[in-house]
Amino acid sequence: THFTSQQLQELEATFQRNHYPDMSTREEIAVWTNLTEARVRVWFKNRRAKWR
């Protein structure tokens, strides 16, 4: 999946605040970024792996 810079900005900003967002937070992010909750969940999983 290719993310727009706007989507990445929103995802990264949320990641800085919370590395493990809950389901409702992921659903909110999905609405803001026009992505599915599953895409958001996978992005956070991959981002945490990169962060370690």
Rank of each mutant, 00 (worst) to 15 (best):
L11P: 01
A13K: 13
R26M: 10
V42A: 14
L8G: 02
K45M: 11
R47A: 05
A30P: 01
S24G: 08
F44D: 00
E10H: 15
N34I: 05
E28Q: 14
Q9V: 11
F3T: 04
R41P: 00
A38F: 13
R48M: 05
L8H: 07
D22Y: 03
N18M: 08
T33S: 06
T25C: 11
Y20T: 05
N18W: 08
E10K: 15
R17N: 08
T14V: 15
Y20C: 10
W43T: 00
V42T: 13
M23R: 15
P21Y: 02
N34L: 06
R41W: 06
W43H: 00
E28G: 07
R47Y: 02
R39L: 15
M23G: 06
D22W: 03
F44K: 00
S5P: 14
Q9G: 07
N46I: 13
A38T: 09
E28H: 09
S5C: 14
E28W: 13
E37K: 04
Q6T: 09
T1Y: 13
H2S: 12
R39D: 15
E37T: 05
E37Y: 03
Q16T: 08
T33V: 11
R41T: 06
H19L: 04
R41I: 05
V42R: 15
K50L: 13
D22M: 04
R41S: 08
E10A: 15
Q16P: 03
W51Q: 08
R47Q: 04
S5Y: 13
T33F: 14
R17P: 01
M23K: 15
Q16Y: 08
W43Y: 02
A30C: 05
R17M: 11
N46A: 12
E37M: 05
R41K: 08
W32D: 09
R39G: 08
S24R: 14
I29A: 01
T36D: 08
P21K: 01
E28M: 14
F44A: 00
T36S: 09
E10I: 15
N34H: 10
D22G: 06
A13T: 09
M23C: 07
L35G: 03
L8M: 07
D22C: 05
N46R: 14
T4E: 04
K45Y: 10
Y20Q: 03
V31I: 13
Q16R: 11
L35Q: 07
K50I: 13
N46K: 14
R52S: 08
E27P: 01
S24T: 12
S24W: 08
N18S: 05
T4L: 05
S5I: 12
A30I: 02
A13V: 08
V40N: 01
T4N: 07
Q16E: 09
V31H: 13
L8P: 00
R41G: 05
K50V: 12
A38L: 14
A30E: 02
V31Y: 13
A30S: 05
N46P: 00
N34K: 09
N46D: 09
Q9A: 13
R52G: 07
A49Q: 10
E27C: 12
T36P: 07
K50Y: 08
R39K: 14
Y20A: 04
R39M: 15
D22F: 02
A38G: 08
T33A: 07
F15W: 07
R17G: 07
N18R: 03
N18I: 09
F44R: 00
A49F: 08
T4P: 03
A49P: 02
F15T: 03
L35S: 13
E28P: 00
K45I: 14
F3Q: 02
T4G: 04
R17E: 07
F44W: 03
T14R: 15
N18C: 14
N18L: 06
Q7W: 05
S5H: 12
T25V: 08
R39W: 11
H19Q: 11
T14N: 15
R26V: 09
Y20H: 06
H2Q: 11
T1R: 12
T1N: 12
F44I: 01
W32L: 15
T33E: 02
A38W: 12
S5N: 10
S24H: 12
A30V: 02
S24A: 14
F3C: 05
A30T: 03
V31G: 10
Q7K: 04
T36L: 04
T4Q: 03
L35Y: 02
T25F: 07
I29R: 00
W51D: 08
T25I: 08
S24N: 12
E37N: 04
T33N: 07
S5L: 13
H2N: 10
V31K: 15
D22P: 07
D22V: 05
L35P: 00
T36C: 06
E27T: 12
R47S: 02
V31P: 00
A38E: 13
F44M: 04
F3W: 07
E28T: 10
V40E: 00
V40H: 00
Q9W: 12
A49I: 10
E10L: 15
M23Y: 14
L11A: 01
E10F: 15
F44P: 00
F3M: 10
R26I: 14
F15Y: 06
R41Y: 07
H19S: 05
H19P: 12
K45W: 09
E12S: 02
Q7M: 08
D22T: 11
F44V: 00
W32F: 13
Q16K: 10
D22R: 06
I29K: 01
R39S: 13
V40K: 00
N18Q: 06
A49T: 07
F3H: 03
H2Y: 12
K50E: 14
R48G: 01
H2M: 11
M23W: 10
P21R: 01
N18Y: 06
A13Y: 10
W51F: 10
L11W: 01
E27M: 15
W32A: 15
W51P: 05
W51G: 06
Q9Y: 12
H19R: 11
E10R: 15
E12Q: 02
E27F: 13
E10P: 01
A38R: 12
A38I: 12
W32P: 02
T33W: 07
Q7D: 03
W32C: 14
L35M: 10
R47D: 01
E27W: 09
A38V: 10
R52Y: 12
H2T: 10
R52L: 14
R48K: 02
E28C: 13
Q9K: 12
W32T: 14
T4A: 04
A38N: 09
A49M: 09
R52K: 11
R26E: 02
Y20D: 04
Q9P: 02
T14C: 15
N18K: 04
S5G: 08
Q6W: 15
A49G: 06
P21D: 01
R17C: 14
K50C: 09
R41Q: 07
E37P: 07
I29Q: 01
A30F: 03
K45P: 00
Q16H: 11
Q16C: 10
E28N: 09
V40Y: 00
A49R: 15
E12L: 03
T1I: 11
R47T: 02
T1L: 12
F15M: 00
A30Y: 03
N18H: 06
T1M: 13
K50N: 07
K45L: 08
V42L: 14
R41V: 04
N46C: 14
E12I: 04
S5R: 14
Q16D: 06
N46W: 15
A13P: 01
R48H: 03
A13G: 06
A30R: 01
R47M: 05
T14Y: 15
K50P: 03
D22K: 06
P21W: 05
M23D: 05
T14S: 15
H2P: 11
Q7P: 01
